[in-house]
């Protein structure tokens, strides 16, 4: 029988093993308790072992008879830019205020597409910033300042 190695299967399995294992290691740091009074560590330990075991199963299956999945390319630019945009929003929305945080987030996100044109990006940014300020701050009375304390002189 011809073996079909499946890279996605092995990768997925490895991730489950890793994540399950991480939770197992973490839960050993908490009290395990007794069956009568299970401590905070017992349940994550059990489920972590289960996830790691299932992951191991997926790895083995991936090495012997894996699913044929086309992994495809990763849009690194989009991954980077969207990560940056979300982190920027979370980090600055309180300090810079709603308008600058939204504008920068929207602008960064538009850059995720490789077909973006500068004029288009600026137009989308402006439109989305105005729309979200009107909807959330003016319309829904979200308690966020339009311009934050970091911008006060």
């Amino acid at each position: 029988m011809e073996r079909r190695r499946s890279f996605p299967d092995v990768l997925a399995g490895a991730m489950f093993v890793l994540l399950g294992g991480a939770f197992v290691v973490g839960s050993l740091g908490y009290e395990l308790g007794t069956p009568l009074r299970m401590g905070p560590g017992a349940f994550p330990l059990l489920v972590g072992v289960l996830v790691a075991a299932l992951g191991l199963g997926i790895v083995v299956k991936g090495l012997v008879a894996g699913e044929v999945i086309v992994f495809g390319r990763i849009p690194w630019r989009a991954v980077g830019v969207i990560t940056l945009a979300l982190v920027f929003f979370g980090f600055t929305v309180r300090g810079l205020g709603f308008v600058p945080a939204s504008a920068v987030t929207a602008l960064l996100t538009t850059l995720a597409s490789s077909r973006v044109r500068p004029l288009m990006a600026v137009a989308v940014t402006a439109g989305l910033t105005v729309a979200s300020a009107l909807i959330f701050v003016v319309g829904l009375q979200l308690r966020l300042p339009l311009w934050g304390p970091w911008l006060a002189f």
Binding site: A85, G90, T109, A112, S113, V124, L128, S132
Partner: peptide, 12 residues
């Protein structure tokens, strides 16, 4: 190109 920035911004 308009929709996905909108999703990201509104979601955050």
């Amino acid at each position: 190109q308009v929709l996905f920035p909108m999703i990201i911004l509104f979601a955050s």
